[in-house]
Design a protein around this nucleic acid. Structure first.
Length: 451
RNA sequence: CGGGGCAUGGCGCAGUCUGGUAGCGCACCUGGUUUGGGACCAGGGGGUCGCAAGUUCGAAUCUUGCUGCCCCGACCA
Protein backbone atom coordinates (compact mmCIF):
# COMPACT_ATOMS: atom_id res chain seq x y z
CA UNK A 1 0.00 0.00 0.00
CA UNK A 2 1.18 3.46 -0.88
CA UNK A 3 0.49 5.89 1.90
CA UNK A 4 -0.34 8.61 -0.61
CA UNK A 5 -3.24 6.48 -1.84
CA UNK A 6 -4.34 5.20 1.55
CA UNK A 7 -6.84 6.78 3.92
CA UNK A 8 -5.05 7.33 7.18
CA UNK A 9 -6.43 10.39 8.97
CA UNK A 10 -4.01 10.72 11.88
CA UNK A 11 -4.31 13.31 14.60
CA UNK A 12 -1.57 15.07 16.51
CA UNK A 13 -3.82 15.56 19.46
CA UNK A 14 -6.45 13.15 20.67
CA UNK A 15 -10.00 14.37 21.24
CA UNK A 16 -10.56 15.36 24.83
CA UNK A 17 -13.16 12.71 25.57
CA UNK A 18 -10.67 9.90 25.04
CA UNK A 19 -8.97 9.07 28.28
CA UNK A 20 -7.45 5.64 28.15
CA UNK A 21 -4.38 5.03 26.08
CA UNK A 22 -5.87 2.56 23.59
CA UNK A 23 -8.77 4.87 22.82
CA UNK A 24 -6.47 7.84 22.37
CA UNK A 25 -4.07 5.94 20.15
CA UNK A 26 -6.84 4.42 18.06
CA UNK A 27 -8.23 7.89 17.39
CA UNK A 28 -4.81 9.40 16.78
CA UNK A 29 -3.79 6.60 14.43
CA UNK A 30 -6.97 7.06 12.42
CA UNK A 31 -8.29 3.58 13.21
CA UNK A 32 -11.77 4.44 14.38
CA UNK A 33 -14.24 7.25 14.45
CA UNK A 34 -16.90 7.59 17.08
CA UNK A 35 -20.39 7.97 15.63
CA UNK A 36 -22.36 7.93 18.83
CA UNK A 37 -21.77 6.80 22.41
CA UNK A 38 -20.25 3.34 22.19
CA UNK A 39 -20.68 3.10 18.42
CA UNK A 40 -17.73 3.37 16.05
CA UNK A 41 -16.82 3.37 12.42
CA UNK A 42 -13.72 1.37 11.63
CA UNK A 43 -11.37 3.22 9.31
CA UNK A 44 -8.94 1.35 7.03
CA UNK A 45 -6.07 0.90 9.47
CA UNK A 46 -8.37 -0.18 12.28
CA UNK A 47 -10.35 -2.48 10.05
CA UNK A 48 -7.14 -4.03 8.83
CA UNK A 49 -6.14 -5.00 12.36
CA UNK A 50 -9.66 -6.09 13.25
CA UNK A 51 -9.73 -8.42 10.26
CA UNK A 52 -6.41 -9.94 11.22
CA UNK A 53 -7.52 -10.58 14.77
CA UNK A 54 -10.71 -12.08 13.40
CA UNK A 55 -8.71 -14.34 11.11
CA UNK A 56 -6.52 -15.65 13.90
CA UNK A 57 -9.61 -16.38 15.95
CA UNK A 58 -11.24 -18.09 12.98
CA UNK A 59 -8.25 -20.28 12.21
CA UNK A 60 -7.98 -21.45 15.79
CA UNK A 61 -11.70 -22.15 16.03
CA UNK A 62 -11.53 -24.20 12.87
CA UNK A 63 -8.49 -26.04 14.12
CA UNK A 64 -10.39 -26.99 17.28
CA UNK A 65 -13.23 -28.43 15.22
CA UNK A 66 -15.72 -25.58 15.29
CA UNK A 67 -17.63 -24.83 12.09
CA UNK A 68 -18.36 -21.31 10.94
CA UNK A 69 -21.84 -20.00 10.18
CA UNK A 70 -23.23 -16.48 10.01
CA UNK A 71 -26.39 -15.50 11.79
CA UNK A 72 -28.20 -12.18 11.37
CA UNK A 73 -27.88 -9.21 13.68
CA UNK A 74 -31.64 -8.74 13.81
CA UNK A 75 -33.64 -11.43 15.54
CA UNK A 76 -37.28 -12.13 16.14
CA UNK A 77 -38.57 -11.63 19.67
CA UNK A 78 -40.49 -14.90 19.44
CA UNK A 79 -37.36 -16.99 19.86
CA UNK A 80 -36.46 -15.09 22.96
CA UNK A 81 -39.93 -15.58 24.36
CA UNK A 82 -39.39 -19.30 24.01
CA UNK A 83 -36.29 -19.30 26.14
CA UNK A 84 -37.84 -16.88 28.58
CA UNK A 85 -35.08 -14.36 28.10
CA UNK A 86 -37.20 -11.77 26.30
CA UNK A 87 -38.44 -10.59 29.64
CA UNK A 88 -35.29 -11.38 31.60
CA UNK A 89 -32.74 -9.58 29.51
CA UNK A 90 -33.71 -6.07 30.47
CA UNK A 91 -32.89 -2.75 28.90
CA UNK A 92 -29.53 -3.90 27.62
CA UNK A 93 -31.36 -5.47 24.73
CA UNK A 94 -32.27 -3.07 21.96
CA UNK A 95 -35.86 -3.82 21.03
CA UNK A 96 -37.31 -2.63 17.75
CA UNK A 97 -40.39 -3.15 15.63
CA UNK A 98 -40.59 -3.75 11.92
CA UNK A 99 -43.19 -2.17 9.62
CA UNK A 100 -45.72 -4.83 10.53
CA UNK A 101 -45.21 -3.95 14.18
CA UNK A 102 -43.63 -7.30 14.86
CA UNK A 103 -41.28 -7.30 17.83
CA UNK A 104 -37.67 -7.65 16.76
CA UNK A 105 -34.39 -7.09 18.51
CA UNK A 106 -30.77 -6.38 17.70
CA UNK A 107 -29.03 -9.48 18.95
CA UNK A 108 -26.94 -9.16 22.11
CA UNK A 109 -25.99 -12.84 21.76
CA UNK A 110 -27.20 -15.87 19.83
CA UNK A 111 -27.99 -18.82 22.09
CA UNK A 112 -31.63 -18.86 21.08
CA UNK A 113 -30.99 -18.60 17.38
CA UNK A 114 -28.30 -21.24 17.28
CA UNK A 115 -30.50 -23.54 19.32
CA UNK A 116 -33.25 -22.98 16.79
CA UNK A 117 -30.93 -23.89 13.95
CA UNK A 118 -29.74 -26.95 15.78
CA UNK A 119 -33.20 -28.28 16.59
CA UNK A 120 -34.34 -27.78 13.03
CA UNK A 121 -31.79 -30.16 11.60
CA UNK A 122 -30.14 -32.36 14.16
CA UNK A 123 -31.98 -35.43 15.34
CA UNK A 124 -29.40 -38.08 16.14
CA UNK A 125 -26.61 -38.42 18.66
CA UNK A 126 -24.53 -39.57 15.70
CA UNK A 127 -24.35 -35.98 14.51
CA UNK A 128 -22.65 -34.97 17.73
CA UNK A 129 -20.41 -33.46 18.87
CA UNK A 130 -21.16 -30.27 17.01
CA UNK A 131 -19.74 -26.81 17.53
CA UNK A 132 -21.01 -23.90 15.46
CA UNK A 133 -19.64 -20.39 15.67
CA UNK A 134 -19.94 -17.09 13.93
CA UNK A 135 -18.20 -13.75 14.05
CA UNK A 136 -20.88 -11.11 14.07
CA UNK A 137 -21.72 -7.66 15.39
CA UNK A 138 -23.61 -7.58 18.62
CA UNK A 139 -25.47 -4.76 20.27
CA UNK A 140 -25.84 -4.35 23.99
CA UNK A 141 -27.30 -1.11 25.16
CA UNK A 142 -24.83 -0.73 28.00
CA UNK A 143 -25.75 1.72 30.68
CA UNK A 144 -22.40 3.27 30.31
CA UNK A 145 -20.31 2.63 27.24
CA UNK A 146 -16.73 3.84 27.67
CA UNK A 147 -13.10 3.41 26.80
CA UNK A 148 -13.66 3.47 23.05
CA UNK A 149 -14.15 0.06 21.48
CA UNK A 150 -13.08 -1.58 24.73
CA UNK A 151 -16.63 -1.28 25.98
CA UNK A 152 -18.76 -0.20 23.09
CA UNK A 153 -22.44 -0.84 22.64
CA UNK A 154 -21.92 -2.30 19.21
CA UNK A 155 -19.04 -4.75 19.17
CA UNK A 156 -17.76 -7.67 17.17
CA UNK A 157 -17.97 -11.03 18.86
CA UNK A 158 -16.93 -14.51 17.97
CA UNK A 159 -19.47 -16.71 19.67
CA UNK A 160 -19.27 -20.48 19.45
CA UNK A 161 -21.87 -22.94 20.68
CA UNK A 162 -21.23 -26.58 21.45
CA UNK A 163 -23.80 -29.38 21.39
CA UNK A 164 -23.22 -32.72 23.03
CA UNK A 165 -25.15 -35.76 24.13
CA UNK A 166 -24.22 -35.67 27.78
CA UNK A 167 -22.35 -33.86 30.47
CA UNK A 168 -19.05 -35.69 29.93
CA UNK A 169 -18.97 -35.02 26.20
CA UNK A 170 -19.97 -31.44 26.82
CA UNK A 171 -17.09 -31.05 29.23
CA UNK A 172 -14.71 -32.35 26.57
CA UNK A 173 -16.09 -29.78 24.14
CA UNK A 174 -15.54 -27.08 26.75
CA UNK A 175 -11.95 -28.21 27.17
CA UNK A 176 -11.31 -28.05 23.45
CA UNK A 177 -12.45 -24.45 23.38
CA UNK A 178 -10.37 -23.73 26.45
CA UNK A 179 -7.25 -24.97 24.68
CA UNK A 180 -8.13 -23.19 21.46
CA UNK A 181 -8.39 -19.95 23.44
CA UNK A 182 -4.92 -20.49 24.87
CA UNK A 183 -3.64 -20.84 21.34
CA UNK A 184 -5.63 -17.92 20.02
CA UNK A 185 -4.29 -15.43 22.54
CA UNK A 186 -0.80 -16.80 22.20
CA UNK A 187 -0.96 -16.14 18.48
CA UNK A 188 -2.26 -12.67 19.20
CA UNK A 189 0.98 -12.06 21.02
CA UNK A 190 -0.42 -11.68 24.50
CA UNK A 191 -0.41 -13.59 27.73
CA UNK A 192 -4.02 -14.40 28.52
CA UNK A 193 -4.74 -16.17 31.76
CA UNK A 194 -7.86 -18.28 32.27
CA UNK A 195 -9.58 -17.40 35.50
CA UNK A 196 -12.33 -19.17 37.28
CA UNK A 197 -15.55 -17.27 36.63
CA UNK A 198 -19.03 -17.21 38.05
CA UNK A 199 -21.09 -19.99 36.53
CA UNK A 200 -24.43 -18.49 37.45
CA UNK A 201 -27.37 -20.76 38.19
CA UNK A 202 -25.79 -23.84 36.58
CA UNK A 203 -22.94 -24.15 39.03
CA UNK A 204 -19.93 -26.37 38.62
CA UNK A 205 -16.44 -25.39 37.58
CA UNK A 206 -17.07 -24.80 33.92
CA UNK A 207 -16.78 -21.12 33.31
CA UNK A 208 -13.58 -19.23 32.70
CA UNK A 209 -12.71 -15.71 31.75
CA UNK A 210 -9.53 -15.09 29.81
CA UNK A 211 -7.72 -11.95 30.86
CA UNK A 212 -4.86 -10.13 29.19
CA UNK A 213 -2.53 -8.57 31.70
CA UNK A 214 -2.23 -4.83 31.18
CA UNK A 215 -1.64 -2.05 33.65
CA UNK A 216 -4.72 -0.22 32.49
CA UNK A 217 -6.99 -3.26 32.80
CA UNK A 218 -10.39 -2.90 34.36
CA UNK A 219 -10.24 -5.94 36.60
CA UNK A 220 -7.86 -6.67 39.40
CA UNK A 221 -6.40 -10.13 39.02
CA UNK A 222 -4.79 -12.45 41.49
CA UNK A 223 -2.84 -15.34 40.12
CA UNK A 224 -0.01 -17.71 40.78
CA UNK A 225 3.35 -16.97 39.23
CA UNK A 226 3.21 -20.38 37.54
CA UNK A 227 1.03 -18.89 34.84
CA UNK A 228 3.94 -16.80 33.64
CA UNK A 229 5.87 -20.00 32.91
CA UNK A 230 3.20 -22.30 31.50
CA UNK A 231 3.62 -23.12 27.86
CA UNK A 232 0.89 -22.93 25.25
CA UNK A 233 0.24 -26.00 23.08
CA UNK A 234 1.56 -25.78 19.54
CA UNK A 235 -0.31 -25.73 16.26
CA UNK A 236 -0.14 -29.50 16.02
CA UNK A 237 -2.09 -30.16 19.20
CA UNK A 238 -4.48 -33.07 18.66
CA UNK A 239 -7.97 -31.91 19.55
CA UNK A 240 -9.36 -35.38 19.07
CA UNK A 241 -7.34 -36.63 22.02
CA UNK A 242 -9.64 -35.93 24.97
CA UNK A 243 -7.10 -37.05 27.54
CA UNK A 244 -4.41 -34.79 26.13
CA UNK A 245 -6.75 -31.81 25.97
CA UNK A 246 -8.05 -32.33 29.45
CA UNK A 247 -4.48 -32.63 30.70
CA UNK A 248 -3.64 -29.25 29.23
CA UNK A 249 -6.68 -27.76 30.91
CA UNK A 250 -5.58 -29.32 34.20
CA UNK A 251 -2.19 -27.65 33.86
CA UNK A 252 -3.81 -24.31 33.21
CA UNK A 253 -6.32 -24.54 36.03
CA UNK A 254 -4.13 -26.06 38.73
CA UNK A 255 -2.88 -22.83 40.23
CA UNK A 256 -4.91 -20.02 41.70
CA UNK A 257 -6.18 -17.41 39.24
CA UNK A 258 -9.18 -15.23 39.88
CA UNK A 259 -10.41 -11.73 39.31
CA UNK A 260 -11.57 -9.46 42.09
CA UNK A 261 -15.13 -10.68 41.56
CA UNK A 262 -14.36 -14.27 42.45
CA UNK A 263 -11.37 -13.61 44.66
CA UNK A 264 -11.09 -15.81 47.72
CA UNK A 265 -8.80 -14.42 50.41
CA UNK A 266 -8.45 -17.75 52.19
CA UNK A 267 -7.22 -19.54 49.08
CA UNK A 268 -5.00 -16.61 48.17
CA UNK A 269 -3.36 -16.70 51.56
CA UNK A 270 -2.46 -20.32 50.89
CA UNK A 271 -0.33 -19.23 47.92
CA UNK A 272 3.26 -18.54 48.89
CA UNK A 273 3.92 -14.84 48.95
CA UNK A 274 6.71 -15.07 46.39
CA UNK A 275 4.38 -16.84 43.99
CA UNK A 276 1.64 -14.25 44.03
CA UNK A 277 1.02 -12.02 41.08
CA UNK A 278 -1.39 -9.20 41.72
CA UNK A 279 -1.98 -7.27 38.53
CA UNK A 280 -4.65 -5.75 36.34
CA UNK A 281 -6.28 -7.41 33.37
CA UNK A 282 -8.72 -6.99 30.53
CA UNK A 283 -11.33 -9.64 29.91
CA UNK A 284 -11.08 -10.71 26.29
CA UNK A 285 -12.77 -14.08 26.33
CA UNK A 286 -15.37 -15.93 28.33
CA UNK A 287 -16.44 -19.53 28.09
CA UNK A 288 -19.47 -21.19 29.73
CA UNK A 289 -21.04 -24.53 30.05
CA UNK A 290 -24.75 -24.19 30.60
CA UNK A 291 -26.12 -27.67 30.09
CA UNK A 292 -29.72 -27.80 28.98
CA UNK A 293 -30.68 -24.27 29.89
CA UNK A 294 -31.78 -23.45 26.34
CA UNK A 295 -32.18 -26.86 24.79
CA UNK A 296 -34.82 -27.89 27.29
CA UNK A 297 -37.27 -24.98 26.97
CA UNK A 298 -36.65 -24.76 23.23
CA UNK A 299 -36.96 -28.47 22.57
CA UNK A 300 -33.51 -29.10 21.11
CA UNK A 301 -33.32 -32.85 21.53
CA UNK A 302 -31.47 -35.71 19.94
CA UNK A 303 -32.21 -39.39 19.95
CA UNK A 304 -29.57 -41.28 21.88
CA UNK A 305 -28.19 -44.77 21.28
CA UNK A 306 -30.88 -46.08 23.63
CA UNK A 307 -33.59 -44.72 21.34
CA UNK A 308 -34.66 -42.07 23.83
CA UNK A 309 -34.80 -38.33 23.17
CA UNK A 310 -32.75 -36.11 25.44
CA UNK A 311 -32.07 -32.39 25.45
CA UNK A 312 -28.54 -31.61 24.29
CA UNK A 313 -25.89 -30.24 26.56
CA UNK A 314 -24.57 -26.90 25.45
CA UNK A 315 -21.81 -24.44 26.07
CA UNK A 316 -20.98 -21.04 24.65
CA UNK A 317 -17.62 -19.47 24.01
CA UNK A 318 -17.01 -15.80 23.32
CA UNK A 319 -14.11 -13.65 22.21
CA UNK A 320 -14.55 -9.99 21.36
CA UNK A 321 -12.21 -9.18 18.46
CA UNK A 322 -13.06 -5.49 18.58
CA UNK A 323 -12.18 -5.37 22.25
CA UNK A 324 -9.07 -7.44 21.60
CA UNK A 325 -7.78 -4.74 19.25
CA UNK A 326 -7.98 -2.19 22.06
CA UNK A 327 -6.57 -4.64 24.58
CA UNK A 328 -3.56 -5.34 22.36
CA UNK A 329 -2.83 -1.62 22.39
CA UNK A 330 -3.22 -1.43 26.14
CA UNK A 331 -0.72 -4.26 26.39
CA UNK A 332 1.60 -2.96 23.67
CA UNK A 333 2.44 0.71 23.35
CA UNK A 334 4.98 3.29 24.39
CA UNK A 335 5.03 7.07 24.60
CA UNK A 336 5.32 7.31 20.81
CA UNK A 337 2.42 5.09 19.87
CA UNK A 338 1.23 1.58 19.28
CA UNK A 339 3.45 -1.51 19.12
CA UNK A 340 1.55 -4.26 17.30
CA UNK A 341 2.22 -7.94 17.80
CA UNK A 342 3.75 -9.39 14.62
CA UNK A 343 0.72 -11.58 13.96
CA UNK A 344 -1.86 -8.81 13.59
CA UNK A 345 0.09 -5.70 12.62
CA UNK A 346 -1.86 -3.88 9.90
CA UNK A 347 1.27 -3.90 7.72
CA UNK A 348 4.55 -5.70 8.22
CA UNK A 349 6.69 -2.65 7.79
CA UNK A 350 6.76 0.99 6.98
CA UNK A 351 8.93 1.69 3.96
CA UNK A 352 10.07 5.21 4.60
CA UNK A 353 11.29 7.26 1.67
CA UNK A 354 13.20 10.18 3.11
CA UNK A 355 13.60 12.02 -0.16
CA UNK A 356 10.55 11.65 -2.33
CA UNK A 357 11.36 13.12 -5.71
CA UNK A 358 15.00 12.10 -5.62
CA UNK A 359 15.35 9.72 -8.51
CA UNK A 360 17.74 7.28 -6.93
CA UNK A 361 15.80 7.10 -3.65
CA UNK A 362 12.47 6.65 -5.39
CA UNK A 363 13.87 3.84 -7.49
CA UNK A 364 15.38 2.08 -4.49
CA UNK A 365 12.05 2.29 -2.65
CA UNK A 366 10.09 1.02 -5.64
CA UNK A 367 12.45 -1.92 -5.95
CA UNK A 368 12.29 -2.74 -2.24
CA UNK A 369 8.50 -2.48 -2.31
CA UNK A 370 8.28 -4.90 -5.17
CA UNK A 371 10.70 -7.42 -3.74
CA UNK A 372 9.04 -7.40 -0.34
CA UNK A 373 5.54 -7.65 -1.79
CA UNK A 374 6.56 -10.52 -4.02
CA UNK A 375 7.95 -12.30 -0.98
CA UNK A 376 4.56 -12.08 0.72
CA UNK A 377 5.18 -9.12 2.99
CA UNK A 378 2.82 -6.20 3.31
CA UNK A 379 4.70 -2.91 3.29
CA UNK A 380 3.12 0.47 3.86
CA UNK A 381 5.16 2.73 1.60
CA UNK A 382 5.42 6.28 2.91
CA UNK A 383 5.76 8.06 -0.42
CA UNK A 384 4.45 11.38 0.86
CA UNK A 385 6.65 14.44 0.74
CA UNK A 386 6.57 14.98 4.47
CA UNK A 387 9.75 15.75 6.30
CA UNK A 388 11.62 13.00 8.07
CA UNK A 389 10.33 13.95 11.51
CA UNK A 390 6.75 13.59 10.45
CA UNK A 391 7.38 10.27 8.79
CA UNK A 392 9.11 8.79 11.81
CA UNK A 393 6.42 10.07 14.13
CA UNK A 394 3.74 8.51 11.95
CA UNK A 395 5.56 5.21 11.72
CA UNK A 396 5.99 5.10 15.48
CA UNK A 397 2.36 6.03 16.04
CA UNK A 398 0.88 3.29 13.91
CA UNK A 399 3.31 0.77 15.34
CA UNK A 400 4.30 -1.49 12.45
CA UNK A 401 6.88 -4.10 13.45
CA UNK A 402 9.60 -2.69 11.18
CA UNK A 403 10.65 0.61 9.68
CA UNK A 404 12.80 0.41 6.59
CA UNK A 405 14.38 3.78 6.10
CA UNK A 406 15.66 4.79 2.69
CA UNK A 407 17.45 8.06 2.12
CA UNK A 408 20.08 9.43 -0.23
CA UNK A 409 22.64 9.63 2.55
CA UNK A 410 22.66 5.83 2.94
CA UNK A 411 22.19 5.08 -0.71
CA UNK A 412 25.55 6.64 -1.48
CA UNK A 413 27.00 3.57 0.18
CA UNK A 414 24.20 1.29 -1.00
CA UNK A 415 22.66 1.03 2.44
CA UNK A 416 19.34 1.41 4.18
CA UNK A 417 18.42 1.43 7.81
CA UNK A 418 16.15 -1.09 9.46
CA UNK A 419 14.53 -0.24 12.74
CA UNK A 420 12.58 -2.60 14.94
CA UNK A 421 9.62 -0.84 16.51
CA UNK A 422 9.33 -2.87 19.67
CA UNK A 423 12.98 -2.90 20.71
CA UNK A 424 14.07 0.31 19.05
CA UNK A 425 17.10 -1.48 17.62
CA UNK A 426 18.45 -0.09 14.37
CA UNK A 427 20.93 -1.46 11.97
CA UNK A 428 22.38 -0.36 8.70
CA UNK A 429 22.23 -2.95 5.97
CA UNK A 430 22.65 -3.33 2.27
CA UNK A 431 19.37 -3.34 0.35
CA UNK A 432 19.60 -7.06 -0.28
CA UNK A 433 20.43 -7.86 3.31
CA UNK A 434 17.46 -5.80 4.52
CA UNK A 435 15.11 -7.67 2.20
CA UNK A 436 16.57 -11.01 3.27
CA UNK A 437 16.17 -10.17 6.92
CA UNK A 438 12.54 -9.11 6.54
CA UNK A 439 11.67 -12.13 4.44
CA UNK A 440 13.30 -14.36 7.03
CA UNK A 441 11.37 -12.67 9.80
CA UNK A 442 8.07 -13.10 7.99
CA UNK A 443 8.82 -16.76 7.48
CA UNK A 444 9.46 -17.20 11.19
CA UNK A 445 6.21 -15.49 12.09
CA UNK A 446 4.26 -17.78 9.76
CA UNK A 447 6.10 -20.83 11.04
CA UNK A 448 5.58 -19.95 14.66
CA UNK A 449 1.81 -20.00 14.34
CA UNK A 450 1.41 -22.78 11.86
CA UNK A 451 -0.94 -20.55 9.86
C1' C B 1 -29.79 4.54 36.86
C1' G B 2 -27.17 7.76 40.99
C1' G B 3 -22.96 11.41 41.38
C1' G B 4 -19.65 14.92 38.74
C1' G B 5 -18.13 17.59 34.31
C1' C B 6 -18.01 19.42 29.33
C1' A B 7 -20.31 21.48 24.62
C1' U B 8 -16.72 27.81 20.60
C1' G B 9 -13.95 25.91 12.36
C1' G B 10 -11.42 18.94 11.29
C1' C B 11 -8.37 18.40 16.33
C1' G B 12 -6.60 20.94 20.86
C1' C B 13 -7.89 25.34 23.37
C1' A B 14 -8.71 30.96 24.94
C1' G B 15 -12.78 34.25 25.36
C1' U B 16 -18.04 33.42 29.58
C1' C B 17 -17.02 35.65 36.13
C1' U B 18 -17.10 41.91 34.77
C1' G B 19 -22.83 41.24 27.69
C1' G B 20 -20.60 45.29 22.70
C1' U B 21 -20.99 41.24 17.27
C1' A B 22 -15.24 35.57 17.70
C1' G B 23 -9.46 34.53 18.54
C1' C B 24 -4.90 31.26 19.00
C1' G B 25 -1.97 26.61 17.88
C1' C B 26 -2.22 22.40 14.77
C1' A B 27 -4.52 20.73 10.25
C1' C B 28 -6.18 22.60 5.21
C1' C B 29 -5.39 25.73 0.26
C1' U B 30 -1.73 28.94 -2.98
C1' G B 31 3.37 30.51 -4.00
C1' G B 32 8.36 30.09 -2.56
C1' U B 33 12.51 28.20 0.31
C1' U B 34 13.48 23.54 2.64
C1' U B 35 14.20 17.98 3.43
C1' G B 36 17.87 12.05 8.33
C1' G B 37 13.40 13.11 14.01
C1' G B 38 6.45 16.41 13.92
C1' A B 39 10.36 22.89 8.87
C1' C B 40 10.28 28.28 7.50
C1' C B 41 8.38 32.83 4.93
C1' A B 42 4.27 35.20 2.56
C1' G B 43 -0.74 34.99 1.30
C1' G B 44 -5.65 32.51 1.90
C1' G B 45 -10.36 29.64 3.04
C1' G B 46 -13.39 27.78 6.83
C1' G B 47 -17.07 28.71 12.73
C1' U B 48 -21.99 32.84 14.59
C1' C B 49 -20.11 29.78 19.52
C1' G B 50 -24.86 22.06 20.78
C1' C B 51 -30.52 23.23 20.25
C1' A B 52 -34.78 26.17 21.79
C1' A B 53 -37.06 29.93 24.38
C1' G B 54 -36.31 34.20 27.44
C1' U B 55 -33.89 38.93 29.50
C1' U B 56 -31.53 43.15 26.88
C1' C B 57 -30.67 48.52 22.41
C1' G B 58 -27.23 44.41 22.01
C1' A B 59 -26.02 37.42 24.16
C1' A B 60 -20.55 32.69 22.91
C1' U B 61 -21.07 35.47 27.60
C1' C B 62 -27.01 36.20 31.86
C1' U B 63 -31.83 32.87 32.86
C1' U B 64 -34.80 28.44 31.87
C1' G B 65 -35.65 23.98 29.32
C1' C B 66 -33.80 20.24 26.09
C1' U B 67 -30.06 17.32 23.55
C1' G B 68 -25.32 15.22 23.00
C1' C B 69 -20.72 13.62 24.94
C1' C B 70 -17.10 12.36 28.85
C1' C B 71 -15.55 10.74 33.88
C1' C B 72 -16.65 7.90 38.84
C1' G B 73 -20.02 3.72 40.76
C1' A B 74 -23.44 -1.26 39.88
C1' C B 75 -23.15 -4.92 34.73
C1' C B 76 -20.74 -7.14 30.37
C1' A B 77 -16.97 -9.83 24.90
Amino acid sequence: MHLSRYFLPVLKEAPREAEIVSHRLMLRAGMIRQQSAGIYSWLPLGLNVLRKVEQVVREEQNRAGAVEVLMPTIQSADLWRESGRYDDYGKEMLRIQDRHERDMLFGPTNEEMITDIFRSYVRSYKDLPLNLYHIQWKFRDEVRPRFGVMRGREFLMKDAYSFDLDEAASRAAYYRMFVSYLRTFDRLGVKAIPMRADTGPIGGDLSHEFLILADTGESEVFCHKDFMRLSVPGAGVDYSDDALISGIVDDWTAAYARTDEMHDEALWDAVAEDDRVNARGIEVGHIFHFGTKYSEPMGAKVTGPDGKDTPVFMGSYGIGPSRVVAALIEAGHDENGIIWPDSVAPFDLGLINLRVGDDETDKACASLYEQLSNAGLEPLYDDTDNRAGGKFALADLIGLPWQLIVGPRGLKTGEVELKHRATGERETLSLDAAVAKLVGWKGEVMERFGG
